[in-house]
C-alpha cells in the first residue's frame, strides 16, 4: 500500500478521537507510517457484526418476555458474553448457569447466587430479578 492510499474514511476508532497506524511505502519505495481515520470495508463488517449482536440481544429480550428464558440470558447477551465467560466470572459451572437460565429455577435463586450474577453483569440484584423483557440499558 502506498502512503497516499492509506484510507481516511470515518471509522470506529475515530469516534473516540484516535486513529490507527499503518505501514505504507512512500514515493521512493521506503516504508514509513501513516495514521488512518478508518476504512469503509472495515466499517461494513463491523456494522454487520454489531447488527448480529443486537439481534441476539433482541431475541433474548423477546424470550424473557415470553417466559422462555430467565433474565440471565438477556444480560449475558447484553454484556457480549457466552456461557463460558459467565461461568468464569461467576465461578459457577456452565451446566448450573444453564439451569439458572430456566425461569422456574431462576425464581428460586437466593440473593447470594443472584449477587454473583449481578456483579458479573454490573447491575443490582433488583435490576436482575425484576427484568421482564423491557427495552433497556
Amino acid at each position: 500500500m502506498k502512503k497516499s492510499e492509506v484510507p481516511q474514511d470515518k471509522g470506529r476508532v475515530s469516534e473516540k478521537g484516535s486513529r490507527e497506524l499503518y505501514y505504507a511505502v512512500d514515493d521512493n519505495g521506503e516504508y514509513t507510517t501513516a495514521l488512518s481515520t478508518g476504512w469503509e470495508a472495515k466499517n461494513i463488517v463491523q456494522d454487520h457484526t454489531m447488527q448480529e449482536i443486537q439481534e441476539r440481544i433482541d431475541q433474548a429480550q423477546e424470550d424473557v418476555k415470553a417466559g422462555v428464558v430467565s433474565p440471565i440470558v438477556y444480560f449475558m447477551e447484553l454484556r457480549r458474553m457466552d456461557w463460558q465467560i459467565v461461568s468464569d466470572y461467576t465461578g459457577m459451572w456452565k451446566w448450573r448457569i444453564k439451569r439458572h437460565a430456566k425461569p422456574m429455577v431462576f425464581a428460586k435463586l437466593n440473593d447470594k447466587v443472584l449477587q454473583r450474577y449481578a456483579d458479573t453483569f454490573e447491575i443490582t440484584i433488583e435490576e436482575l430479578k425484576n427484568y421482564r423483557g423491557e427495552e433497556c440499558k
Binding site: 500500500m1 476508532v13 490507527e20 497506524l21 499503518y22 505501514y23 505504507a24 476504512w39 470495508a41 472495515k42 463488517v45 463491523q46 454487520h48 457484526t49 448480529e52
Partner: peptide, 23 residues
C-alpha cells in the same frame, strides 16, 4: 455472513496494521 465478518475483522481490525500483518 457473520463468520466472514469475523474473518475480515481478525485480518484488518486494530492491531494488524492492515492485510493481516503483511505490511
Amino acid at each position: 455472513n457473520y463468520y466472514l465478518a469475523q474473518l475480515v475483522r481478525m485480518q484488518e481490525e486494530i492491531g494488524t496494521g492492515g492485510g493481516g500483518f503483511r505490511y
